[in-house]
Design a binder for these strands. Structure first.
Length: 105
DNA sequence: TGCATGACTTTCC
DNA sequence: TGGAAAGCCATGC
């Protein structure tokens, strides 16, 4: 478990229900590495966090677990559009470094 | 040190 | 948003 991985998982854990975050968004928020690294970390340590709240820039969910992710997102009330996530409404961004209260602006 | 690989992104049509 | 092509970053062998 690297420090980078922990940071990524921390951000994912702060994603509120009904909201999602893109790999690029997480990478940008951390200000380190790139989207691919975030994806790699999720593939290895994403088992302990709401990974279904992490999608790519196209709004597509995790490959291999699309049905599973969509099922959970739908249960949380995430704005879905068929098999894709409506990023325009679901896209979320952390307010502070450790503040999990403040949500969408 | 160098090449291949991967839960990706951005640009163009 | 949707598909195709090129580019980026870090890791593994």
């Amino acid at each position: 478990m690297d420090d980078y991985a922990e940071s990524v998982l921390s951000v994912v854990e702060r994603i509120p229900s009904g909201r999602v975050m893109t790999y690029g968004g997480i990478a940008e928020f951390l200000g380190a590495g790139g989207p691919r690294q975030v994806g790699t970390v999720m593939s290895r340590y994403g088992g302990g966090v709401p990974w279904h709240r992490v999608v790519n820039a196209s709004g597509r969910v995790v490959p291999g677990h699309e049905q599973e992710a969509l099922r959970r997102l739908r249960a949380e009330g995430t704005p879905l559009r068929g098999d894709r996530v409506d990023l325009r409404l679901a896209a979320w961004w952390p307010d502070g470094p450790l503040v999990a209260s403040g949500q969408g602006k």
